[in-house]
Computed example of a mutant assay.
Amino acid sequence: MKFEDFQKDLRKLKKDLRACEVEVGKVYQVPSKEHIQPFKENMEQFIIQAKIDQKAEENSLTETHKCFLETTAYFFMRPKIGEKEVSPNVFFGIWHEFSSDFKDFWKKENKLILQER
């Protein structure tokens, strides 16, 4: 999981949405106007909502990336040599390891406490 992959996917989604708009525009130019209205109304609503959703996802990814960088800075994590930033995989891998170890020790301590009682 990399932020660059998410950004690439969002760019592809935006490109596909533009292609969809072009195709819809071609349908509007068809000489038969009798069947255009339900299609046109629905597609205009879809495209407007899709643009809003796509922009919201871009903003959400930007905000998430910013928060992630702030979090890694708070914990004084530095990127590996040759990398420009700490990857989520590395960061959460460390947390997963810590959580697993903590859980194991917690269980052992609970067993000891129960045995002492």
Rank of each mutant, 00 (worst) to 15 (best):
H35D: 05
L69K: 12
T64W: 01
I81T: 03
K111F: 12
E83I: 01
D5G: 05
K111T: 10
C20I: 06
I113Q: 07
V30T: 04
N59P: 00
H96F: 08
D16C: 03
Q115F: 13
M1T: 01
K33W: 00
K103P: 00
R78Q: 15
E57G: 03
Y74M: 05
K51N: 14
E34L: 10
E41M: 11
I94P: 00
K12I: 12
R11K: 15
P88Q: 09
R78C: 02
I113L: 15
K103F: 11
F6T: 05
K2D: 13
E41H: 08
Q115H: 08
H65M: 04
E63C: 02
K40G: 02
M43I: 13
K51R: 15
F46D: 03
V22N: 11
T71P: 00
I94K: 12
L10D: 03
K8V: 02
G82T: 02
P31A: 14
E83R: 11
N110C: 08
F92G: 01
K15Y: 12
H96G: 06
V90I: 11
V24R: 10
K103I: 05
T62F: 09
F102K: 09
K84E: 14
I94A: 10
Q49V: 06
E97I: 02
L61N: 03
D101S: 12
Q54V: 05
Q115C: 11
E85F: 07
E4L: 04
Q7H: 10
G93N: 05
E21S: 13
Q54H: 11
F68Y: 10
E97V: 02
V86K: 04
D5N: 13
R117N: 14
L61T: 04
V30P: 00
F91P: 01
K8A: 15
Q37M: 07
K15G: 04
L61S: 01
E116A: 15
P88T: 04
C20P: 00
A56C: 04
F105K: 12
K103L: 15
I47T: 07
F92P: 00
K66M: 08
I48A: 14
F39H: 07
D5L: 10
K108L: 08
I81V: 04
V86G: 04
T64G: 03
E4N: 04
M43P: 00
E41Y: 08
L61K: 03
Q7T: 11
F98R: 07
K51Q: 15
D5C: 02
M1L: 11
S87Y: 02
R11E: 13
F3E: 06
F98A: 07
G25I: 01
A56W: 02
K80D: 14
K14C: 05
E23W: 05
H35Y: 12
K66E: 13
R78N: 09
E44L: 15
F76L: 10
L13Q: 09
D16P: 00
K84I: 06
V24M: 13
E41S: 12
M43W: 09
R18H: 09
D16Y: 08
F75I: 03
